[in-house]
Design a protein around this nucleic acid. Sequence first.
DNA 1: TCTGGGGTCCTAGGACCC
DNA 2: TCTGGGGTCCTAGGACCC
Length: 374
Amino acid sequence: MEKRVVMHVDMDAFFASVELKKRPELRGRPLIVGGAGDPARRGVVSAASYEARKFGIRSGMPLRTAARLCPEAVFLPVDFEAYEGESERFMAMLRGYTDLVESFGLDEAFLELRVKEGEDAFKKSLDCARDIKKRVREEMGLTCSVGVGPNKLIAKLASDMKKPDGFSVIKEKDVEKTLRDMPARKLWGVGEKTERRLKFLGIKTIGEIAKTPLRHLERNFGPSFGRMLHEHSRGMDASPVVPFFEPNSFSREITFEEDTNDVYFIKETLYELTKDLTGRLKDEGYKGRTVTIKVRYADFQTITRSHTFEDTTDSMNDIWSSAAELFGRVDLARKVRLVGVRVANLEKWKGAGLAGQPAVLDGPPAGPAGVAKQ
DNA sequence: TCTGGGGTCCTAGGACCC
DNA sequence: TCTGGGGTCCTAGGACCC
């Protein structure tokens, strides 16, 4: 069995770079894309040009904070359609190299090349990576950073090592050495909270996680996450490159411009979101079984209320009655900053048959229900 | 200085079944 | 008459990813 070689391609400051293509006159100036493009309004940074990053601006940061750090920055609203268009071109280009392309958001993808007997997968990947970088530059007028490694985890760490316009390769034999002194936070699945908990345990680097006994990690982080930390810290990742998977949920949510007490307004907003959501379900041919509404209060405490139907549905009638009933169970004496609605447990609707009936019927769960113990 | 929107997966407790 | 053990499903919350 040949060893795997995985490539991770990550577009540099994607949203900001697409905006600069539309507005070349802004080149060289700090550019921040996020929300409505107005730092006086609520929203966060979706992307910042490298000039803006010099001021400490990072994605996820409130726009107001970004404006304080860099008052001379240009702020632009998020233009999803433009980024989706560029993203489709990007993904199509990548699919020209292999059918094993897994898109990860609009601006990232994993690739795995299929190789014939006796062919060098590693060399082939390096050639392919160079070619992709060249074509992204020449055909799209954008730059990307590429990482090559023995699996997805390592390929992604590699692409992150040199940015922008970087190219890094981590060979199997160099994995331990390369990861050892990286901050734990770099590891897939380690966010702010986990980083804090690790620090509390005296663990700051990936190498230190790797030295921690599995039992110790499992005790502190649970069996599933503990094992993941153990494996990831050693650079182990067997997850395959998956070109397509069915979505499990769709959702719509919105943050109000100002926190509000107006129950009628909140409910009306929830209704509009639900209408939008069922429209999407029908457009894309899915039905769902679980409806969840979400309310975030002014203090950022977030609650959810959910209901599961016996059968899947895409009917506005069903989904809205459920959402409205759930909404009635929410404490609305406090000010609210966000409402949202989600439909989960989706099933692809092969709706070629009678309206309301599936064209392909799955049988009832087969087999005996089990045997009672005496 | 506040903290978007769209997703995924995990955990924990309770109901319920055999 | 005194209280098992395993499995699955549902609900609520939380961490994390882009």
